[in-house]
Design a protein around this nucleic acid. Structure first.
Length: 638
DNA sequence: GACTCCCGCT
């Protein structure tokens, strides 16, 4: 629709002023009214009117004007790729280079690099002169396609045109070689440049980071004459990718101390990701405070990262606050918040928020339903789960994927409805994955269905023989049914195949430092106090009527011999003991465990939350347990 | 007349 103000302008073109007198030297090009009008257009229809005007005056035959028009159509948010292509087609024999370049750029931006390459081919056929922009755009397309062979041909063309020293082209070549795993070729281009700019350095950094070559990465980073925000972000992302989250945060600290450059949204999102995986709430809150202090607007990405951080730190209030202070909410924002309620055991709130999302008119996606269905299975809401599963395809036209079927299998298995679970597995059109079998084994263990548990455990090992989880779970099933022969067979199988059980590890963050404990750990500087505290805990637990659940020890393949004493030294208990001696009375204790919490620790922590009057929040591999006044938010349903 | 490098996850 045209706005009222713009109608008279368009219907009565402003006269073009033409110099009254002719001069000896060629006159400068007249200011082009139509082209200026183009950029005032707020809608596509307005632009097509200007376009029509230009056709009428044959202006579109002029390469420059056609170029600007193509640029507007192809790249502005008011444009249309189809219209831009029509401009290209209006030059059937020899389209202007600029028009070709602009379209290639647009194709790349819209993630359609194949069209870029095709257009470049057409330029070759039509003998359209390529320039430095042509090569940057085609190289970008090659990079997106990982088309190394074509990229090398273009590299040859670049040399032929004498454009090897062009910074943009050179950087694109480095990037292409780096992401194609040809780091030595990337280095050759890099070393061949007289004065590589920071983008060239960064592209090399990225190459080494992708190759997981920490040594060269560090050498390069240290020898950089100047580092910008991208350089630092690349290093931080490298550590996150490598799972070295503390190093990532350390890098972030160094970045701030160096004051070489400021940080940006990418930095914040990366750091939040590291903090999230560590479960280090204090550092996450620091990032949030930074965002507020610098009045950085929460866009949908940053807010999702923030909500996710609070969620994974078990801090529901923080997540809600972040959600509510986000002005532009996307599906991801809603998903993050619904997922937070789900993971923290607030199934009904998750479902309630989903209803609000529906009411807001936003379309839920696959992930939304994964979160909602998960809420139903964790909350034991079988009927609702079935309803949402049906609604997903019937109302929203979303085909269930393996994850959704997994939620349903989980939903039925947890509720002990194993026939229903098996029915789904048999009838679904996708092969069951290992997540699904893990859910089945877990539920079989809780509901003591040893027969199906064994079958599922064997499936698990068959699907992924390298994953230790299958062996551990199967052995647990055997141990619970007193099938010691089975336990022995699994243990031998693990040994023969060189599979190692991942040791349980719990961490707790205090004053910006993350302390890690493994079972029976004696490495901590304050180990004497910690063990004294453990003794006290054990005594108080006993007085409160707690009985160590030694069946849990039998399940633990590698520690079957030490029984009761080994239970008392489980990593989560150590972390809690350290939390108790290091924080003030009443303070919440937050622990992150890499595996699922053990059943004995679960009962012990319930009592301890009462004995010491503390909120104890444990994030395990699957979900959260908020222990408070003797009970847990999971309602023992996990 | 314009362009290149970094994030996010079930």
């Amino acid at each position: 629709m045209l706005s009222a103000a713009s109608i008279p302008v368009l219907s009565a073109p402003v006269p073009v002023s033409i110099p009254a007198t002719s001069v000896a030297k060629p006159p400068p090009p007249p200011p082009n009214t139509n082209l200026s009008l183009l950029h005032l257009c707020t809608h596509l229809q307005e632009a097509t009117q200007v376009h029509a005007l230009m056709v009428k005056t044959s202006q579109t035959a002029d390469p420059y004007s056609a170029g600007r028009l193509a640029e507007f159509y192809a790249l502005s948010d008011r444009g249309s790729l189809e219209h831009a292509e029509k401009i290209l087609d209006s030059f059937p024999h020899h389209p202007p280079t600029f028009v070709c370049n602009t379209l290639m750029r647009a194709y790349s931006e819209r993630r359609n690099p194949l069209l870029s390459i095709n257009l470049y081919r057409r330029m070759l056929v039509d003998a359209v002169e390529a320039d430095r922009f042509t090569f940057t755009f085609t190289l970008k397309a090659c990079t997106q396609l990982c088309a190394l062979a074509i990229g090398m041909q273009i590299h040859a063309q670049v040399v032929k045109h004498g454009l090897e020293s062009n910074a943009h082209i050179r950087n694109k070549l480095i990037h292409l070689y780096a992401v194609s795993g040809r780091i030595r070729d990337a280095r050759k281009v890099f070393d061949g440049s007289t004065e590589p700019d920071v983008v060239a350095w960064n592209s090399m950094l990225q190459g080494y980071a992708d190759m997981d070559d920490g040594e060269n990465l560090h050498n390069l980073f240290d020898s950089m004459p100047a580092r910008d925000v991208v350089s630092w972000n690349t290093m931080i992302a490298y550590y996150i990718e490598a799972g070295e989250f503390e190093e990532a945060i350390l890098m972030f600290r160094l970045m701030q101390q160096s004051s070489e450059c400021g940080l940006n949204r990418v930095t914040l999102i990366s750091v939040l990701s590291a903090v999230t995986q560590l479960g280090a709430l204090g550092q996450g809150q620091w990032v949030h405070a930074y965002i507020k202090r610098h009045a950085i607007e929460l866009d949908e990405n940053l807010s999702s990262a923030l909500i996710n951080m609070y969620s994974k730190c078990g801090c529901i209030e923080g997540a809600i606050y972040s959600f509510e202070t986000t002005h532009r909410r996307s599906v991801d924002t809603w998903n993050a918040m619904i997922g937070c309620f789900t993971a923290n055991g607030c199934s009904l709130r998750a479902i309630d928020l989903f209803s609000k999302m529906e009411a807001s008119g936003l379309m839920p996606n696959k992930i939304t339903f994964t979160c909602v269905l998960n809420a139903c299975s964790h909350g034991g809401l079988v009927d609702r789960g079935i309803r949402y599963f049906e609604k997903m395809s019937n109302v929203y036209g979303i085909e269930p994927d393996v994850g959704h079927y997994g939620c349903m299998v989980d939903l039925f298995s947890r509720a002990g409805l194993f026939e229903k679970a098996e029915e789904i597995i048999q009838r679904m059109p996708i092969e069951p994955d290992k997540v699904m079998w893990k859910a089945v084994v877990g539920a079989c263990r809780v509901n003591k269905n040893y027969e199906l548990g064994e079958k599922a455990g064997l499936k698990l090992i068959e699907i992924d023989p390298d994953d230790n989880a299958g062996y551990v779970l199967l052995s647990n099933i055997y141990a619970m049914s007193n099938n010691w022969n089975g336990v022995y067979r699994v243990r031998k199988l693990m040994h023969d195949r060189g599979i190692k059980k991942v040791p349980g590890c719990s961490s707790i963050e205090l004053d910006g430092l993350v302390h890690e404990f493994i079972a029976g750990d004696a490495a901590h500087a304050r180990k004497k106090e910690i063990y004294k505290m453990l003794d006290e805990m054990a005594q108080k637990l006993k007085r409160a009527g707690y009985e160590p659940d030694t069946t849990q020890v039998l399940l633990d393949i590698e520690e079957a011999d030490v029984k009761e004493s080994s239970l008392a030294l489980h990593s989560e208990k150590l972390a809690v003991a350290y939390g108790l001696i290091s924080t003030s009375p009443g303070a919440t204790i937050r622990v992150v465990k890499n595996l699922r919490i053990c059943g004995d620790c679960h009962s012990a922590l319930k009592l301890l939350s009462q004995i010491y009057d503390r909120n104890i929040i444990v994030r395990d591999a699957n979900r959260f347990h908020h222990f408070n006044r003797g009970s847990c938010s999971c309602m023992d349903y996990w």
